[in-house]
Write a protein that binds this DNA or RNA. Sequence first.
DNA 1: CCGACTTTGTGCATCGCTTCACAAAGGGAT
DNA 2: ATCCCTTTGTGAAGCGATGCACAAAGTCGG
Lengths: 244, 244
Amino acid sequence: MKSPSHSRDRGIPEATVARLPLYLRALHGMAERGVATVSSEDLAVAAGVNSAKLRKDLSHLGSYGTRGVGYDVEYLVYQISRELGLTQDWAVAIVGVGNLGRALANYGGFVSRGFRVAALLDADPEVVGDTIAGLNVEHIDVLEAVIGRRGVSIVVLATPAAAAQEVCDRVVSAGVTSILNFAPVVLSVPDSVDVRKVDLSIELQILAFHEQRKAGGPLMAVDSAVSEPSEQTGLLTGPPKEDL
Amino acid sequence: MKSPSHSRDRGIPEATVARLPLYLRALHGMAERGVATVSSEDLAVAAGVNSAKLRKDLSHLGSYGTRGVGYDVEYLVYQISRELGLTQDWAVAIVGVGNLGRALANYGGFVSRGFRVAALLDADPEVVGDTIAGLNVEHIDVLEAVIGRRGVSIVVLATPAAAAQEVCDRVVSAGVTSILNFAPVVLSVPDSVDVRKVDLSIELQILAFHEQRKAGGPLMAVDSAVSEPSEQTGLLTGPPKEDL
DNA sequence: CCGACTTTGTGCATCGCTTCACAAAGGGAT
DNA sequence: ATCCCTTTGTGAAGCGATGCACAAAGTCGG
């Protein structure tokens, strides 16, 4: 399920799927502002893409535009939502209630459309029993039961790196086939399971690469950056845990 | 700087750059376990990629392998680190100290290699003055001063969506050209500025899409999706037009 | 009803990334 | 030194994504 484009994906390219949420967000904003119809050009600008690309993307869903006019905002919202599977409610479980897990649990946009946090799980007895964002934190022991009984189909992994693969295995055994992984490890899963990863340090490193290029190009002076410890930054004590 | 591949990038493709951190992480793990040399095959497995791809990626940095033997782990770590610009220290400022900002500030892997949190900034007087991960939270008013004086070259945006563009503009004016954006908005910046975005809800929506496909495939009852435009769309406002 | 104008949907050329497959290069044994 | 084995580095084919450019299709004013 990792492969770029599926045989029977009804021909919706992966690259298009990745952009649909972007269009959807832009459309929601427009709907709220009372915009009734929008041209591919305007929507493309709002989503930060090329208008030809946008039209081609939308054409994969069907012909939902009107030539000479544009797209009906509400209708398009519905069509994209349906295509993305947001017309139903997805039960999500968050495993690992460290700093990040807490942040995710409190993340409003989570619940907003299509997703519902159905469980918070952690191995640490210290946090089990806490209430976060109105949810009780349960012990990881009940993982399988929770997944089964509450119909969890998407699991968010926010555990320390060391625990991620083990939890992942259990989650997969329990029948979950969609995982969003925040732990900095390469998870190994069967082909039938979809894993998407969000990795802060990778993003920073990519930025650093380009930044270095920029600095080295024009007129690289002194590599500043390290110069002054400046005020209180010097006493950055070791952070609590390796937990993300 | 958004363009996929730069003319004078010394020819390192963007796709390759995005994988180098992955290789680096795998190599660090191996170095810690005392592995001296590694073959492209083994490293590829550890990083979750195809071995031919890995070799081609590494070949963009130079010929650092030994035929018949493999790659020297430590040497390769150094070469990749240098290429990514991790041999210097990058000062990072985190703007927006909500749940996510806090989690990021406490993220250990942050400081570990090449990156140093140099400032935490927020607009809310309630949190300004707090100490998080050993750092004092300062008011957003001093943004420009902090960026200038502490040599901040990478800014992490963890503000609410509504504030993101404004903060972004200020950050860019202050001379920052690398931004990691967690706010769910499309930032508009000059071409010379690199923006990478991390967007939880987009990732979830992509997972939902594939999950829906999986559910609809094997033996889903209804399915719809394919054949006809389906009439139940009526519950949303009427489509601009219908039929054929 | 017509003609000018707008905007969609898409064929096509192009581009960059992936993957295969293999020659070239090194190590080690005899 | 020679042969065999391993593994790298890369030419070339294949594949999907991008963006241009335009015909088709629709709107609107007269």
